[in-house]
Design a protein around this nucleic acid. Sequence first.
DNA 1: TGTACATCAGTGAACGCGCGTTCACTGATGTAC
DNA 2: TGTACATCAGTGAACGCGCGTTCACTGATGTAC
Lengths: 191, 191
Amino acid sequence: MRYDKGHKDETRRHILDVASAQFRQSGIAAVGLAGIMSEAGLTNGAFYTHFASKEDLVRAVLVDALTKREERHKANLENGVAVETVIRDYLSTRHRDRAGSGCPTAALVAEIARHPKATRDAFTGKISDIVMLMAKQIRQGTAEERRRKAITIYSTMVGALQIARAVNDKQLSDEILQNALDAAVAIANDG
Amino acid sequence: MRYDKGHKDETRRHILDVASAQFRQSGIAAVGLAGIMSEAGLTNGAFYTHFASKEDLVRAVLVDALTKREERHKANLENGVAVETVIRDYLSTRHRDRAGSGCPTAALVAEIARHPKATRDAFTGKISDIVMLMAKQIRQGTAEERRRKAITIYSTMVGALQIARAVNDKQLSDEILQNALDAAVAIANDG
DNA sequence: TGTACATCAGTGAACGCGCGTTCACTGATGTAC
DNA sequence: TGTACATCAGTGAACGCGCGTTCACTGATGTAC
């Protein structure tokens, strides 16, 4: 073969990274394969050497981006990072202003709800895992209570981040992040 | 004129209603003007008698759908409806399963964040109004505290509804709605 | 060692299709004289 | 009252464009004998 061993895997990973950022920044429907491939430094046709279809790419991006998030949660848990720190990072102006490298759920959840079963299955599995990891990270309450708290905190973070991104008034946007942050931390530490 | 007085207004309203439902059901980018016009019983060309562009329609739909929501909040406030009732309706399986007639924020907020300034301005104004109305509806706390609660409750509701819609597991989806509901009600009544 | 063939990631042009938008036209009614 | 013209919501075909996808081809390397 004229390419290094592992070259194809690297190319696939590169396309995945480019697509992942573009999808989160602009939405799945608004992003075209041509734009992804050209940013990846390849021509249109090469796409199908790596993925069966756009939907196949969407699924791969989703699993990849959510798996990275999951691994971060795992590392946080192992290193004893407080859930408060996770909430603070999530509801930061930095995260709000950098959707392309941010949480795939906040960026894509409404679109995912309209995608085929296989795509939603992949999402469901990862969300379950992330909720479980967040529950373990919470210190107050029974296992059942911690799970409930994790679900509420995650919902609040996803909703607040999205509204803060859509709102066209810096003061209101900051206020939304701050209030959701305080409330989420209070829920985590309550009881 | 060969049409009744007010006919054009009625047609415009009909296009608006059809578009509003389709956008919320399928997303803005995924819906085409041809599909809207044919469901409205008209041909493509007639669209531009009523709207300047797709973006103009998007803005009109957003303002219309959010104004209707706002008016419902106003009526609730005047009739002394408890905020708990609003939360219960919002986080119901019925609302989850009928996105087309549901909350435009939950359906479209991520897409709105990527639309032009004028569209985001319209959204921002309406969100401010709705938050203020919800704050007035909350009985516990100072004005400042009630505003904070309203922002948190709204964020939680929007996030939870979206995740419940995307998740492909009825049990988990119901659990998300229920937990967010309990938490939102607790925030409203707390203090 | 030299030659013929196989492999395969990537190229680049082309496919049909639906998109948002434009525009010449229709035809029922209103107005002017 | 009758005729000529103006109005205007809606028609329907066409526009250029970018979409996802296909496919014959390239060319550097590996393998067989």
